[in-house]
Write a protein that binds this DNA or RNA. Structure first.
Length: 405
RNA sequence: CGGGGAAUAGCAUAGUGGUCUAGUGCGCCGGGCUGGGGGUCCGGAGAUCGGAGGUUCAAAUCCUCUUUCCCCGACCA
């Protein structure tokens, strides 16, 4: 289906909302991708939802490529009892959880309790392991200070994967495959993410993060000599240590970065208190090891805009663009629709600017906010010699209609 | 939660005691001229100036309280 811009609900604005200073919030709100009902809480408008769905689908495909890994959908509403069984109710309630119904339920900030409960009811044999279960769902966290547009919200879309194993070796194998899948996800989204050693937080001594270098990031990382790996400053005790200097290649190098994913080994932290056991080959009931792996999907979008956004808008990476191509007709020729239909026929998402009475400048300005990787313009060159302007980012060429695709 | 800033039409803003019957730009509705970087002209609709209370002959404007948003910090499984 050719999408007609006259039918697109996307109010483009010339100015960013007052006081909104982060680049991703400015561009996404100016472009009509998102709207903000309250701090850290966003509505995804049709344009934003298109990007959100594309990123979600990339994540889904890469997760389903992992061995014995399935998609589920767990509830956002979680019972207090499960959190009490793992001892996390007291520490979590005043901290990050929103509670409802007189504290009997909480809006899930994460799903270790729920997924472990799922596991103990559904799985009882070592033969069913390893097992990976993931979901793509909204998470709720009471951030003391929501900020930076999609980078730190109170409700946000996240992919969370949990894995279950009989032994450490099996877990390590799975863990490494997840790390590789994560790098593929970021790559497909147009991001260059660094595997970064970080603190383990509530769970373990260390975890691995995926960091995208960006001046506006909250984190500081120490870069390895080859620039392909990093350490989060939270695990660096002393930046003058000789070990660290050697790691960085003779001179300590730091950079600001945005965390776009985090993977943990959980050990038996949840399986033990919740009695998630399986029967092994000898018939013994054994404790299982778990891992958890998260990607903030809405944060990935914010990060892409932080990294690729400009004063005028953004050119989206191909796989996550709301539209693959944008046709702008300045001369009123039926060939514009014909081209759009041809592109549509090969399975691309095509947007046709079919609106009337707008100036060329306005169409281009809004096109810059929509950010299709390819833009076809029917203008002066079409009238003169029948060529269409083809723009990919900043690269411009002129082609005859029959040369396109 | 500490510190700083800000709330006026859908958006961005002007106005700091009487000239405000709240101005302008964008957007919106009707119409004209236009058409390569948010063009232009004419006509229109849209605001109880975040909320509550107070001071005053008179409050968008001064005072008190309150709510919300942004920024810095703390926090971030």
């Amino acid at each position: 289906m050719v999408h007609h811009q006259s039918q697109l609900l996307a109010t483009m604005r010339r100015e960013a909302p007052a006081g909104e200073t982060s680049k991703n919030a400015q561009i996404l709100m100016r472009g009509g991708y998102i709207q903000k009902p309250s701090a850290g809480v966003y509505t995804f408008l049709p344009l934003g939802l298109r990007v959100l769905k594309k990123v979600s689908q990339i994540v889904r495909e890469e997760m389903l490529s992992l061995p014995r890994t399935h998609e589920v959908l767990m509830p956002a509403l979680q019972p207090r009892e499960l959190w009490e069984q793992t001892g996390r109710w007291e520490e979590a309630i005043g901290d990050v959880m929103y509670t409802v119904d007189d504290n009997k339920l909480a809006l899930g900030p994460t799903h270790e309790e729920i997924v472990t409960d799922l596991f103990r009811q559904q799985v009882s044999s070592y033969k069913q392991l390893p097992l990976g279960l993931f979901q793509i769902q909204n998470k709720f966290r009471r951030e003391l200070r929501a900020k930076s547009g999609l980078l730190r919200g109170r409700e946000f879309l996240m992919k969370d994967l949990y894995s279950f194993h009989t032994d450490a070796k099996a877990q390590d194998e799975y863990y490494d495959e997840v790390a590789a899948a994560y790098l593929r996800v970021y790559n497909r989204c147009g991001l260059d993410a660094l595997l970064t050693k970080a603190a383990g937080g509530m769970f373990a001594k260390y975890s691995d993060e995926f960091q995208v270098l960006c001046e506006t990031g909250e984190d500081t990382v120490y870069l390895r000599a080859d620039g392909r790996e990093a350490r989060n400053e939270e695990i660096v005790e002393d930046s003058s240590s000789s070990e660290l200097i050697e790691y960085c290649g003779g001179e300590v190098r730091t950079a600001k970065a945005i965390e776009v994913g985090n993977i943990f080994r959980l050990g038996t932290k949840f399986s033990k208190p919740l009695d998630a056991l399986v029967t092994d080959e000898e018939g013994n009931r054994i404790e299982i090891l778990m891992g958890c792996y998260g990607i903030g999907i809405s944060r990935v979008i914010g990060t892409v805009v932080e990294v690729l956004g400009t004063d005028r808008g953004i050119t989206w990476p191909e796989e996550i663009a709301p539209f693959d191509a944008h046709v702008i007709d300045l001369v009123g020729t039926p060939e514009a629709l014909s081209l759009a239909e041809r592109i549509d026929a090969i399975g691309k998402d095509i947007l046709l600017d079919d609106r009337e009475g707008l100036s060329a400048g306005e169409r281009f300005a809004e096109g810059d906010l929509i950010g299709a990787p390819v833009r076809y313009v029917f203008g002066k060159s079409f009238t003169a010699d029948g060529t269409v302007e083809v723009r990919r980012g900043t690269e411009v060429s002129f082609k005859k209609l029959e040369e396109i695709q």
